[in-house]
Amino acid sequence: MPHMKQDYDLPDTSEAMKDLAREMVSRIENGQLGHAVALVDRMNDVREQTLYQEIGRLTRALHEAIKNLNIESVGAGSEIHSATDKLAYVIEMTDKSANRTMDLVDASMPLASVINERAAELQMRWQRFLNKELRPDEFRVLTRDIGEFLGQSADQSRQLQNQLSEIVLAQDFQDLTGQVIQRVGKLVRDVESRLVNLVVMAGTIDSITGVSHRGFSELDSESDLAEEIDAIAAEGPQINPDCEGVVASQDDVDDLLSSLGF
């Protein structure tokens, strides 16, 4: 926040008011009531002038903020709109990747089970051979089956390998979506700091006009109240598991439920 500090302090206005007030007191003490009353008018002038100045400044800042955010053209082309598009892109990318991964797993599962079942079956017969329980004709079939199995599992494990590396490739969304989310995060921080600037400026006007309305602390307590009213409203994933009132794991959920008689 550059240039904000001086707006907030209004040293010129304070100084002018102080001088006028001192002069007024001394006029009254000297019995010059007419002069003193005239000074009230001058104080009013200073106040009004500052007020116009500050409103002008606020208007310019507001205009600047809007211009920088590109939200003048509401809808297409604005930065907010493009952030929404970007987030939609994140959803699309993650959705695509999750489905691609699951497709590949779905294709890999049967291969793994075939290898598993076939190996288990051959192992049983191989054990019988080692125990010398196999007749020569059974042994001939076994060697043929083993040869077939080795060929098949070489093929199938190669397929599995390919599918596993494709699963790894399907995770490339993390990089892309991460970049997009970082950009959107920066935009949100920008918007926040601009809004804070505007609030500070508006606060200056409040102090000049003598208007007082709800400050931040009251707003906070109000949102607390709203939260109390609907404490169980859906919040989505908890980012910080150390947060008060949040369970850290499934075990905590189970403990809580069992304490309730589940």
Binding site: A231, I232, P237, P241, V246, V247, V253
Partner: peptide
């Protein structure tokens, strides 16, 4: 993904039979 104690208690009171938090 809802993991607040109050929410789990509310679900229990509403008559849920089981509660699994994501990721699971």
């Amino acid at each position: 993904a809802e993991a607040k104690r109050e929410q789990i208690v509310a679900a229990a009171q509403a008559g849920v039979n089981g509660y699994v938090v994501k990721p699971f």
